[in-house]
Design a binder for these strands. Structure first.
Lengths: 143, 143
DNA sequence: TGATTCGCTTGCAAATTGCAAGTGAAAAGA
DNA sequence: TCTTTTCACTTGCAATTTGCAAGCGAATCA
């Protein structure tokens, strides 16, 4: 996978070449909003992603600078994944996907939550971005 | 394809089951922002989508109420596709995808345009939504 | 020291995609 | 009127991608 050979240079096309599949944004969701930060946790994330798919997407995300893989000094088997600034910047996209889907399909999102989200977009995004940033920082400070 | 058997009921997952592939949002882009409203125009849209893929996605979009297929009374061969309200409601999602991608990759989007988009999100979206609504209305009034 | 858990990888079948060609019906051109 | 072109697709098939199950070495736990 070479980062430089796009089908076309339209930003929507490039965005889709990076994220346009069934799994990528679900992984970002788990990293950003569910506190899942390692391979096992992401595997058990509820939508039954296969381990080779997860492995492949995490590698791509690293290539594209969307996540960073940290070594855990307490457990050398374990790797911890955190979102970079670029990964965190996907929050508005996820937000719009949630709102659009919940508007037109029955989903598991609690109506109360949705109402809050819709009426406080900015503060909702700020909160999510702050917590994601905190998670990233806590890892990188561990050397 | 049955609309009711989702892998999970998370809104992000459902959204991805509807839109999560390489082509769907490109078709929406062409319908919404490029004035392409028929099969041929969408085929020649620049990213070389195969006709069977286009056909398949248009059918799914109709199922999900994202587009409507109109008969052209002046040319009975021709069908005209327009976005429904649900389709038009994808504008914010496309907006965030454009902004995110252009922020982190070199794209063909003119920097001036991007600056405007970023600083006038609301008016940019209103404009796009208004023109998409006008296109839909002009078709449905033709009976 | 033996079992378990970690993050993967491998092999293979099944599903999806991409490509090229073809279809019938309608319209346009001679 | 007859031929050619254009329309929105469909079909058949090869290539790629995905999903599933099992397996791997290294690290940790009991």
């Amino acid at each position: 996978m070479t980062k430089t050979q796009w089908r076309s240079h339209c930003p929507i096309n490039i965005g889709l070449e990076i994220l346009g599949d069934r799994w990528s944004l679900l992984i970002v969701r788990d990293l950003m909003m569910k506190g899942r930060d390692n391979f096992r946790a992401l595997l058990d994330g509820g939508e039954h992603i296969a381990s080779n798919m997860l492995s492949d997407r995490l590698a791509k995300f690293e290539e594209f600078g969307i996540i960073v893989r940290h070594e855990d000094q307490n457990d050398l088997r374990r790797k911890v994944y955190t979102l970079t600034e670029r990964g965190i910047a996907l929050a508005p996209l996820l937000y719009e996907l949630i709102v659009w889907t919940a508007e037109y399909e029955k989903t598991a999102a609690p109506p109360e939550e949705l109402k809050k989200m819709k009426h406080n977009r900015d503060s909702y995004l700020r909160e999510i971005e702050a917590s994601a940033k905190a998670a990233a920082k806590s890892q990188s400070s561990k050397i």
